[in-house]
Simulated scan of single mutants.
Amino acid sequence: MTSSDANPSALYAKLLGETAKIDWQDLERFFAQGKLLSVARDLDLVSVAEAIAGDDKDLVTRWLASGLVERMPAETAAGYANRKPELWAVVVSPWICVQERS
């Protein structure tokens, strides 16, 4: 059972409540610090944050290995700066998980 099923965990619910739409300009300084994680659109942003916060090393390692979660690439950051897409983010200190929504 995943957290996005009918009965989300308390951590999932907490992180969901902390997830918000954000402008790229508000994220740029965190990108410069190397603290942004890019989350693929086909993953649930809050589930990724929950796995990181819950220290689910196996799941996070699989996402990292497959490129579904990665440190924000410079090309992606430049694209965000130019296009100003709809971005959603959630903080899992020290990381900020960011996902573009279409």
Rank of each mutant, 00 (worst) to 15 (best):
S93E: 15
D56I: 00
V98E: 03
A65C: 00
S3K: 07
K21F: 08
A10T: 11
V69K: 06
D5R: 13
V48S: 04
L16Q: 14
D55M: 09
R83N: 09
W63K: 00
L16S: 11
A89G: 10
C97E: 04
T61N: 14
W63H: 03
S47K: 10
Q99D: 02
A81L: 09
W95C: 03
T19A: 11
S93V: 11
V92G: 04
V91Y: 08
F30E: 12
V60H: 05
V39Q: 04
A78N: 12
L15N: 07
D26V: 00
A10H: 11
T19N: 08
A6L: 15
V91W: 13
A6T: 11
A32R: 14
D5I: 04
A32V: 13
A78W: 06
Y12I: 01
A77T: 03
N7D: 13
A65V: 03
D56N: 09
L16V: 00
D56E: 13
V46Y: 06
Y12C: 00
A40E: 11
C97F: 04
A65I: 01
D42V: 06
P94W: 14
P85E: 10
A40Q: 07
S3T: 10
Q33D: 15
S47R: 12
Q99G: 00
L27P: 01
V60Q: 04
A65H: 02
S102Q: 12
G79F: 05
L68F: 05
L37M: 14
V69I: 13
A40K: 01
E28P: 00
L68G: 02
A89F: 07
D58W: 07
R83Q: 12
P85C: 05
A40S: 13
E86Q: 15
A13L: 15
L11K: 05
W95L: 03
A77M: 06
D23T: 08
A6Y: 13
A81Y: 04
S38E: 14
M1T: 10
Y12T: 01
W95H: 12
W24H: 04
L87A: 02
G17P: 07
F31T: 02
Q25N: 12
G17L: 11
E50P: 00
R41D: 15
A10E: 15
A78Q: 15
K57M: 12
Q99N: 01
S38N: 12
D55V: 06
D44R: 03
P94R: 14
R41P: 01
A78M: 14
A40I: 02
W88L: 09
W88S: 03
I22E: 12
